[in-house]
Amino acid sequence: MIALNRREPALHPVVHLVGCGTRPTRDLPRFATSLRTAGWDPYLIPSPVGRHFLDLAEAEERSNHVVRWDFDPGDPVELPRAQLVVAAPASFNTITKLGAGIADTLALAVINEAVGGGMPVLLAPWANAQLSAHPAYVRAVASLRSWGVRFLPTDQSEPFPWPSLQNQMDSLRP
């Protein structure tokens, strides 16, 4: 489904950074700059709705890579093998689909392939209290945790915890 480019090993650890259809996704380009400064090589992969929250030109400039969000039969997606896959912010929709193994978008396929391949995956959910209490969400989180997916606690009454996310990522760095 996704061609993982087997080119020379990267100088810095690669992170596939998925952003979903929520307001904090607009901050991903600045976060990519912070990650590059910290020695990561971020590839931004927004969900189809998440791309509407991004300034794509800024995202590509700050990540130093083309931003991909969709499957295109005429232009297969080639991504380098990542050392970490992060979904931040991760929406209710993304988390419930992941828990069911659905890979109907590039963003979901990247995360699901990482889970299936035993790669480290970190999710930073961004869902309100009512959605977080939904039975499908609770089941999805339990399934994902049982598969080894890590979660960073977030609270929508506070700003998105970018610094905490970066600290958690650094603790998972190879």
Rank of each mutant, 00 (worst) to 15 (best):
S171D: 11
V110M: 09
R81G: 06
L98Q: 00
N167A: 15
R23A: 15
F71G: 01
P120K: 05
V86H: 03
V77L: 03
V138Y: 00
W69V: 09
F53R: 05
A140K: 00
I111Q: 10
S34H: 14
L28K: 10
L108W: 01
L108H: 01
N93R: 11
L84R: 04
R7S: 14
P135I: 03
G118M: 01
V121K: 07
V141P: 00
V121M: 05
E58S: 13
A88W: 05
G21Q: 06
L152C: 03
W147K: 05
T33W: 10
S132A: 15
R30W: 13
W69Q: 11
V14K: 00
G116L: 15
P89Y: 02
K97E: 00
G148W: 04
T37V: 14
L79H: 05
A59I: 07
D41K: 02
P24F: 06
D170R: 09
N5I: 14
L84A: 03
P80L: 05
S164F: 12
P89F: 01
F160E: 08
S171E: 12
W126D: 10
T22N: 14
A38V: 12
A142L: 06
G116R: 15
S47P: 04
F160P: 11
H12D: 11
L144A: 06
S143I: 14
W147Y: 09
S164E: 15
R6I: 10
E8K: 13
A82T: 06
G118A: 02
S47C: 06
P89R: 02
V49M: 13
M169W: 12
F31P: 08
G50I: 08
V66Y: 10
V66Q: 14
E78P: 04
H65A: 04
P135W: 00
Q168N: 10
P24A: 06
A10R: 12
V110W: 10
L35Y: 08
H12A: 15
H16N: 12
W126C: 04
L108E: 02
P42N: 11
L54Q: 07
L172Q: 11
D104I: 04
L165H: 07
A3K: 13
D75H: 14
G116D: 13
R6G: 11
S91A: 07
L122P: 01
F151G: 09
A142C: 04
L79P: 11
L131Q: 14
